[in-house]
């Protein structure tokens, strides 16, 4: 079967273009703009403290004299890096374990799936907190992501397992095989769209999971607190009673940026799924 990718239709949809613009804008702000800042925006008192948003400080400043216009993109950058590294690591593990389980014998399969079930049930968050807290002096931003990736692969592994084992039994693959299509062509035409689709879904869902964990552990203070991330910014805002003192922008601005990032990423995924991978859906048995 010739696989139809509807790129053109997708590229013309406002529902795709608006989140795409937002997403690219956020990436530029987080990665390119921060490269031009020549001070450390996490330092204290380089700006007047607790200024509400005004022309010279568009997002206001914190009670510790940090400019949120510089602080937030830095925080967003670090959070994105953490979640992306975590997603890549956990998706790699998930694909390894999930597809091995789906393709191997009954014994190996049930052993692997029991392992996946156990890791699903284990509460990852307190474990992450203890690890991050005890090793906080040795942590770097990518390392945080790697540790999260090592813990969060169980849910994507389940999805991959279900997908691969259902794909194995699909009749169209036999049809292709028996009609004499070369193996590599079967892989390209019949497998790749499914694999890409699940890769995309796994990546996005693990990224949001990692962002959530980053924010949660930071709010508890179990993180390398000197690193500027969205979570630590929220933590310090709560630590210095931002709500009580009425410095609401200290909390609201990072939250708004994080929500826009997550939502634009998610909508992009849904739209790509609808137009590029619409035919690659596996109906769950």
């Amino acid at each position: 079967m010739a696989y139809v990718y509807r790129f053109k239709e997708l590229a013309l949809r406002p529902k795709f273009l608006i989140p795409l613009t937002l997403f690219t804008g956020l990436l530029v702000y987080a990665f390119i703009y921060t490269a031009t800042i020549n001070i450390n925006p996490g330092r204290w008192y380089y700006a007047p403290p607790a200024q509400p948003p005004n022309p010279s400080y568009p997002f206001g400043t914190t009670s510790m004299g940090q400019d949120l216009f510089l602080l937030v993109p830095m925080a967003l950058r670090n959070t994105i890096v953490i979640s992306f590294v975590a997603a890549v690591i956990s998706v790699l593990i998930a694909w390894g374990i999930g597809s091995t389980a789906a393709l191997s014998s009954t014994v190996a399969r049930s052993a692997l799936m029991t392992l996946v079930d156990i890791v699903c049930v284990l509460p990852g968050l307190p474990l992450l907190m203890v690890i991050f807290y005890t090793w906080r002096d040795h942590l770097t931003i990518p390392l945080i992501g790697i540790i999260m990736g090592l813990i969060g692969w169980a849910f994507p592994a389940r999805a991959v397992y279900a997908m691969v084992s259902s794909l194995r039994q699909r009749t169209f693959i036999y049809t292709s095989y028996f009609s004499g299509l070369a193996i590599y062509k079967i892989v390209i035409k019949d497998f790749i769209p499914f694999l890409l689709r699940y890769l995309m879904i796994n990546l996005v869902s693990t990224m949001t999971w990692a962002i959530g964990n980053e924010v949660t552990t930071s709010i508890f203070g179990a993180m390398k607190m000197e690193e500027v991330t969205i979570g630590t910014t929220i933590h310090w805002a709560m630590y210095y009673q931002a709500i009580l003192l009425g410095v609401w922008w200290w909390l609201a601005i990072p939250v708004v940026f994080l929500v826009s990032f997550v939502l634009s990423l998610y909508v992009l995924m849904v739209e790509i799924d609808r137009y590029i991978f619409a035919r690659a859906r596996v109906t769950w048995g």
Binding site: T208, G212, T216, I234, A252, V255, L258, V259, L263
Partner: peptide, 22 residues
Amino acid sequence: AIAFQPIPFAVLAISFLIFYAL
């Protein structure tokens, strides 16, 4: 529901806290 689903719970809880207290 679809719009709220991907947002991490921590962010929702913090937003609610801002709303509730302020």
